[in-house]
Simulated assay, not measured.
Amino acid sequence: MKARFKQWISIFAAVSLLLGMSAAVPGKSYAAFWNLNGAIVTHDPSIIKEGDIWWNFATGSGLPVSYSLNGGTTWNTGVPIFSQPLSWWSTYVPNQTYNDVWAPDVKTYNGKVWLYYSISTFGSNTSAIGLMSATSIIQGDWVDHGLVIRSNSSTSYNAIDPNLVIDANGDPWLAFGSWFDGIKITRLDKTTMKPTGTIYSIAKRSNGIEGAYIVYRNGVYTMFASIDNCCQGVNSTYKIVVGQSKSITGPYLDKNGVNMMNGGGTIFDAGNSVWKGPGGQSVYGTSVIARHAYDATDNGTPKLLINDLYWDSSGWPTY
């Protein structure tokens, strides 16, 4: 993997040059809906800002990476994280499609960048979540920390769709899960960033729920999750729902007070005539939300959508 760091250094050189020309690049005017262009074909985006650069990590071969130098408007193709599968993957997911990596989550914590990702096969819960870390994204000095948690036919849950959550005390947790037995959350050790205790159930739905992303704001944990079916182009029925809790382990209730363990969830984004099946969301801080949706004007191609994220007077998220 070290050989690939030279590619990141090349990107760093190009980035530095372009940033040096930044006076000639108009600043992005943040509006509710960001007008994006460039390398925006994506699935399950995880966005993060490092310095003046926006990054997107996504589902795909080798775990694709893209970046923006002008405030998140124009996106450029970066270097995937994995040039080939890691040797330990096949131990836990022997039938994985070659180097196919799913639903990453990238976040800074305790002076490092942490990258959780999942490997699996569609429709199966023979899955695993892995972990990488780096001193910074631009340096690209990624270190493999191996397996975080796994699942198979003997477990009720599915170990995919990881989300690193930092609680009110600054302690790390990992939310994960897709269909099967719903969404779980477990405390992480601050040193290893791997599970150290009980696995709690926080959301379940008979017609599918996955991709949890939890943010803490003003004493409340808000969980965004994707429901129904993805990955069918314009026929996708994906939607984003939300629920809230005063405790990171739940219960998470929707606006009508229905527990998300009982199928609750207030619809946050159901798409429109152009953008079908929004989901696979991530939130940067508490003010920016990204997700993919299928472009009905482009044969259902999944693309990156970013919005400013607002909060109403009752503390619920809104566009």
Results as ranks from 00 to 15, higher is better:
S245P: 12
L253P: 09
I209A: 15
M261C: 14
G208R: 09
I209T: 14
N262A: 13
S273M: 07
N259H: 01
C231F: 12
T237M: 03
S245W: 07
P251Y: 06
S236C: 11
G263E: 01
G265V: 00
V234Y: 01
G257A: 03
N229L: 13
S226H: 06
T266R: 00
T249D: 12
S273C: 10
Y216T: 01
K246I: 08
A212N: 07
Y238H: 14
F268K: 00
N256Y: 08
R217H: 12
A212F: 15
G265R: 05
N218K: 06
I267M: 00
A270Q: 12
C230P: 14
M261N: 13
Q232C: 07
V234E: 01
A212K: 04
G219L: 02
C230M: 07
M261H: 03
N235F: 04
D269Q: 02
V241G: 05
L253N: 04
G233N: 01
G257Y: 08
A225D: 09
Y238A: 05
A270H: 06
V242C: 07
V220P: 14
K239S: 10
M223A: 07
E210P: 13
I209V: 15
Q244A: 08
M223F: 07
S247K: 13
N229A: 04
I248Q: 12
G208Q: 14
N235V: 00
I248P: 15
G243R: 00
V234R: 00
T249Q: 09
L253H: 06
I240L: 14
Q244Y: 07
C231L: 03
I248Y: 14
N235A: 04
F224D: 01
G263S: 03
V234I: 08
C230I: 06
T249K: 10
I227P: 07
N218C: 05
V220A: 02
M260Y: 05
N256H: 04
D254W: 13
G208L: 14
V258N: 08
Y252L: 12
Q232A: 13
T249E: 11
V220I: 09
K246H: 15
G271C: 06
T266Y: 09
N259V: 02
N259E: 03
G264H: 04
V258T: 11
N272R: 04
S245V: 08
G233D: 01
T222G: 09
M223V: 06
T266C: 03
V274S: 13
C231D: 05
E210F: 15
C231G: 04
I214G: 03
F268I: 01
I209H: 10
A270Y: 07
Y221F: 11
G233S: 06
E210S: 12
L253V: 10
N256D: 13
G243M: 05
Q232H: 09
I209D: 07
N262F: 13
F268L: 01
F224S: 00
Y216Q: 06
L253F: 12
V242A: 02
V234H: 02
G250A: 12
N262R: 04
N256I: 04
V215H: 01
G250V: 14
C230Y: 05
T222I: 06
C230H: 02
G233F: 11
T222F: 08
I248E: 13
D228G: 06
N229K: 02
Y221D: 10
I248N: 11
M260H: 00
I209S: 11
G211S: 15
D228N: 15
Q232F: 09
A225K: 04
K255I: 03
V242E: 05
P251S: 04
G243S: 05
G250D: 10
V274P: 14
V234G: 03
I209Y: 15
G211K: 11
V242T: 13
G257C: 08
